[in-house]
Design a protein around this nucleic acid. Structure first.
Lengths: 129, 129
DNA sequence: CCTAGTGTTCTATTTAACTATTACAATATA
DNA sequence: TATATTGTAATAGTTAAATAGAACACTAGG
């Protein structure tokens, strides 16, 4: 996997797993691939995987069973809350950054609308294939 | 100044200066504080400042005159384009991330609207001081 | 000419992230 | 009871970012 070399890999791994939990690609109680397998999949060292998983275990999002494997928490509300947190983080970041670029509240909203609309038009172009 | 220890300081310094150029706090042709002064202001090493400025000079946003100082480019259209780029980056990032969290286009727009609205209400509360 | 204030460059250290490798601990299963 | 598979931990080495400190190069002004 390709990583952004501007942010620590273990944080990017956490982000990937968070997203898979939130989108349901990883379901509550589901077993994760073995750490050694994850290391291969992500083309990264086992220690780096372990560092990511270790913090997520400490946070209660994963449950570790020595000799068996790592599992997604069964706590579904916790996962729902996680999604809210991740969304909120993103919103706070854009808002802060666009405000720092002197965009007003209205300009922020309309710029997002325009961006989404443009993305949509791009997708439409594929219909001509 | 406080930095996010998850992203290199010299990149954060670039971001600050970019923002000051875009918002007009630093005007075209204006002289920047001396590198040693900037290092003091940002509570950072001179070399780190130099690393940030060096790349911005290479990018053409700053002009360096040995023995005199560093100056913002006189090229106003270049600065206008910079703002567009920075805004676009932010929009691309949120869109990508929120989509990865399974939000639809409409949900992305409405979530931004709700967020801005909530921020507005928070600000109103200060009027009661 | 000299000095102070600029930008620029260099070397040496420290620290955090990552890698590589090995070993250990617990579980499941043949 | 072995053996394979799992998570966990420890040690050692590499790299990039940042710091500290010194030196060099150019400009302006007394």
């Amino acid at each position: 996997m390709e990583f952004d070399d501007k942010v620590p890999i273990y944080l990017q791994i956490k982000q990937v797993i968070y997203h898979e939990m939130v989108t349901g690609k990883l379901k509550p109680g589901e077993q994760l691939p073995a750490v050694r397998q994850l290391a291969l999949d992500l083309t990264v060292n086992v220690n780096t995987v372990q560092r990511a998983l270790g913090t997520m275990i400490a946070e209660g999002f994963l449950v570790s069973q020595r000799g068996r494997g790592n599992f997604v928490t069964e706590d579904q509300p916790k996962i729902a809350t996680l999604k809210q947190q991740l969304v909120q983080e993103q919103l706070a970041t854009v808002y802060h950054e666009l405000h720092a670029l002197n965009l007003s509240d209205d300009e922020i909203i309309t710029s997002v609308q325009r961006y989404v609309q443009q993305r949509g038009n791009q997708d439409d172009s594929h219909l001509n294939d």
